[in-house]
Amino acid sequence: MVVDPPTTTGLQLLTRMAPLHCWAWLWVLAGCVTTASAFLKIGRDRYGFVAALVPPAVWAIAYLAAVMSGEFSRGAYVAIWYLTSHVGVIMWAATVPEHSVPKPPRTRRAEGG
């Protein structure tokens, strides 16, 4: 990726605003927020799910815009892939109930010992 970066075909909406390496930081930042949120108490990790949704949603929108503008006709397949394999899975994961691990029972000391 560093030596031979991928093409920006279909990402013109994004590359008009900033170079692709700047957009890569969106993925890094979202990953850091998502990772940090994983260590929060149950029910407080919603910001991690929101952060995880942002990069693939932005990429899907960029590819859909490229399809609608005629710049990249095959972008519809890529947008559908991001919307199903990324956005859809994250949204499903956000609905899975979480359960906390119960505390281990307290052991009683042996009397007379």
Rank of each mutant, 00 (worst) to 15 (best):
E71C: 05
A65H: 07
P55T: 01
T15D: 04
A24R: 15
G10Y: 01
W25P: 07
L64N: 07
L29M: 14
V28W: 08
G70K: 00
A52D: 07
S37D: 00
L20R: 14
L64A: 03
R74H: 15
G10Q: 00
L13H: 12
F39E: 01
A76R: 14
W59Y: 14
V50K: 11
A76K: 11
Y63D: 11
L20F: 07
G70S: 06
G70F: 00
W59N: 03
W59K: 09
Q12S: 14
V33M: 08
T34S: 09
I61P: 12
P19N: 09
A36V: 09
T9G: 10
F49H: 10
T9A: 15
R74F: 12
A18T: 10
T34D: 07
C32M: 07
A65C: 12
R44T: 00
M68T: 08
L53E: 05
I61R: 11
V28R: 10
A60R: 01
G75I: 06
L14K: 01
A57P: 12
A65Y: 06
Y47L: 09
T15W: 03
S37I: 04
M68Q: 14
A38D: 03
A60N: 09
V78L: 09
A18H: 15
L26P: 04
R74K: 13
A18M: 12
H21A: 15
L26W: 04
M17W: 13
G75C: 05
A76I: 14
L20Q: 07
R16F: 06
H21E: 15
E71R: 02
V33D: 00
Y77C: 15
V50R: 15
W59Q: 09
T15F: 05
A76N: 12
L64F: 11
F72R: 05
A52S: 13
W23G: 09
A36E: 05
Y77N: 14
C22W: 14
P19L: 06
T34E: 07
Y63L: 13
L13R: 09
V33F: 09
A18V: 05
H21L: 13
R46G: 10
P55I: 08
D45G: 00
L26M: 10
Q12F: 06
A18G: 11
S73D: 12
W23C: 02
I42G: 00
A57H: 10
W59G: 01
V50Q: 08
